[in-house]
Amino acid sequence: MGTWGSGNFESDTALDHLSAVIDRLVTEVTDAMSGDPVALEPDEYWGVAVPCDLELLHTLAHAGYATGLPAPEVIEGWKKTFMAVWEATIDDLDPSPAYKTERRTVLHRTFDDLAAVSRHETTD
């Protein structure tokens, strides 16, 4: 089909590129979730990067650009794994009670928002 509009994502090449970006984000999260749980601790790279990847996926999906998201059940499993590590290790970093409460809320919302958009994608 080639190019069908002047927008940044209105061509086959742009959508191929976007698909590769989405695949990379999903693969990163999948690999992190199936790897060593220590890597998911709040002060480790994947403990920070996984929520970033999830929010990027949500933003793309909410804008109508992300398809092929994992099933909501997969995302809910990721949440269970991630939050178990977070809850078991966050106190080692001596966070303030306010930060801990606020961060927990943000993390739950991040997983839940992506699961919701994935659920919507699978029902369309």
Rank of each mutant, 00 (worst) to 15 (best):
A14Q: 12
T30S: 14
L40E: 05
E55I: 01
F82V: 07
L18D: 07
L93K: 02
R24N: 10
K80S: 14
L57F: 09
V106A: 08
H58W: 15
I90G: 00
V29M: 06
A88C: 00
T89M: 00
D124C: 12
P97M: 06
L18S: 03
T81C: 02
E73I: 05
G77I: 00
E102K: 12
G68P: 05
L56C: 07
D124I: 06
D91A: 01
G35A: 15
D16E: 14
V117P: 04
A61N: 07
K79I: 01
W78P: 10
G2C: 03
A14T: 07
H62C: 01
T13W: 04
W46C: 03
T30W: 01
V106Q: 10
S6Y: 04
E44G: 02
T30M: 03
A115V: 06
H108T: 10
T30G: 11
V50A: 08
D124S: 14
P95A: 00
G64W: 08
V21F: 02
Y99F: 15
I75W: 10
R119G: 06
E121N: 10
D23A: 13
K100E: 01
V29K: 07
G2V: 02
D31C: 03
A98M: 10
Y45P: 00
P37F: 03
M33T: 05
A61E: 04
P95L: 00
I90L: 03
R103D: 10
L56R: 11
V38M: 02
D124H: 12
R109A: 15
T81S: 09
M83S: 08
L60P: 04
T101C: 01
Y45R: 13
H17K: 11
V50G: 09
C52I: 12
A116K: 11
